[in-house]
């Protein structure tokens, strides 16, 4: 076993009865950001849901710190050290900020560590999470993952519907998480922003990996990204395939 915190081997995942992800293999090293890119419908969220246990893995193996987890129910994967920041800011709206953290705390998880990372949340610790701004809610969801004492955090499109300044703030927080030795598997609509903080990247098309390599190789290369997203580019069409075109 190398120093991988998460390792997928030939994993296929269904959504309902429909196969979405096919034979995906990937690895994530501790203390690094691994980026997953792809067009809408490529299977990125299904891949994350499959790793977290929310979608059924039909074949292949998922190992967390060397131990297979693909048969575990969702909550056991979390208890094993897998944090998941789902799309759409899934705070418990009727609970306060503090209570949101409390229900997620596990192992060495410490609310103070979360408040250090997001001082905004400390000021609002007694406020119901439903009354927070979108950015604060996303910080809370990230904080909730952090307080579960994870080995890895899966982050799915945390920038959705947020102002660019907030997105930069969140990206900075992701870098801080990595600084704590936590691995991050990141799906992000702003591809170039994600590639800036990522070490390795995987690009999915129609549920299969079509690129696997260092982020440096594709950072800023819109044409190549576009080709990975949609297939070969027509010669007469020059399309900017920056992050916002996913």
């Amino acid at each position: 076993m190398s120093g991988e915190v998460l390792s997928l081997k030939d994993v296929s995942i269904n959504r309902g009865d429909t196969p979405i992800v096919h034979d995906v293999s990937l690895t994530v090293a501790p203390g690094t950001v691994t980026v997953v890119l792809g067009a809408n419908g490529a299977g990125k969220t299904t891949l994350m849901d499959g790793i977290a246990g929310l979608a059924p893995v039909t074949s292949g193996t998922i190992q967390l710190d060397g131990a297979p987890i693909e048969k575990f129910p969702v909550y056991k994967r979390s208890q094993a050290g897998l944090g998941y920041v789902e799309q759409a800011r899934t705070v418990f709206r009727t609970l306060t900020v503090e209570q949101n953290l409390l229900v997620s705390r596990s192992g060495k998880g410490d609310a103070e560590k979360v408040y250090e990372l997001f001082p905004e949340l400390k000021k609002r610790r007694s406020l119901q999470a439903g009354h927070l701004s979108g950015g604060e809610q996303q910080m809370l969801v990230l904080g909730r993952a952090l307080i579960s004492d994870p080995k890895i955090i899966l982050i799915d499109e945390m920038s959705l519907g947020l102002a660019p300044v907030v997105v930069r703030r969140l990206m900075h927080a992701v870098k801080d998480l990595v600084g704590l030795g936590i691995a991050v598997l990141l799906i992000e609509q702003f591809a170039n922003l994600a590639l800036e903080i990522g070490a390795n990247a995987y690009v999915l098309r129609k549920g299969r990996v079509v690129f696997d390599g260092p982020c440096d190789e594709i950072r800023g290369d819109s044409e190549r990204l576009h080709e990975f997203y949609f297939g070969a580019m027509p010669t007469d069409a020059v399309v900017e395939a920056g992050g916002e075109n996913q």
Binding site: Y75, T94, V103, S104, R144
Partner: peptide, 25 residues
Amino acid sequence: TSVGLRLQALSERPSTAQVVGIPAP
């Protein structure tokens, strides 16, 4: 209580409750 808060979380977002480690079943 801690159990009560977990039950509230479970009732509000069952799948997210499991995602944060609450043994929902």
